[in-house]
Amino acid sequence: MQEGGKRRRLTRGEMLVIAAPYAWIALFFLAPFALIVKISLSRPAQARPPYEPVFDGAGLAGFFEKLSQLGLDAYRGLAEDSLYLDSYLSSLSIAGVATLVCLLIAYPFALAIARAPRRLRPVLIGFAVAPFWTSFLIRVYAWITLLKDEGIINHALMALGLIDAPLPMFATSGAVVVGIVYSYLPFMLLPLYAAIEGQDASLREAAADLGATPFQVFLHVTLPLSRRGIIAGALLVFIPSVGEFVIPDLLGGSDTLMIGRTLWNDFFANRDWPAASAAAVALLALLLIPILLYERAQLREGER
């Protein structure tokens, strides 16, 4: 019944079940995107709400009239203002570095959990993922105490006589990378663990029997077999990091540009809704390929 290749119509009973979630998604997920695109084409105005509507008013004639005066101002602003370009590039590079660091920390961790005695594995992975459910804001905040000039790490290093003056760690791009790695580690860990734990141990034994050293076994058997976990984990860390607001705002310096923060400032500080919407559209365009890749993996997973 699940298997029929052709997509079929829903029965009346099924429609009753799906109506509420479908309507909800249409209203609170699909409509918002349509509106973001719409507002991004409007002009800022000194009004409440602070934008001049496009497409409102009536009829097809009105539509074509409006179309001719469609404002691409917000997008022109995006292209011309180097602030936006810099934000995008720096978002991509910070998120990229953070994803790589996350992978380097999570892989040995996931491997160690997957190779632990079978009885312990669920407990270990449970404890490794548990911090994800605690407040994101609080976990980021905890790093302020550690990284500040008068914070715990600098204090400890100075007490040990390793440094004379505090290392400038707080309010840097490096601090933002640390914050992202710390916050999103579970996202990397879970798919890696699943990919490593599900491997057939006899493959490794066979390689070892044929004379491979443990490192060769890892390089030629374990690592390639965990490729799907690596891709899923990297996407899950990279995508939300690019649009991150809280971490650059609390741990970054005033010169740490990230697009989520620029969008937030456009909206809350400058009250420029069209610019914020245009930034959102551009952000989604930037993330479209990674998001589609992730969605495809999810759908495949969901249909299994």
Binding site: F29, A31, V242, G243, G260, F267, A280, L283
Partner: peptide, 8 residues
């Protein structure tokens, strides 16, 4: 990204 969901 949460900023996009929130804005929308």
């Amino acid at each position: 990204p949460e900023v996009v969901l929130g804005l929308g």
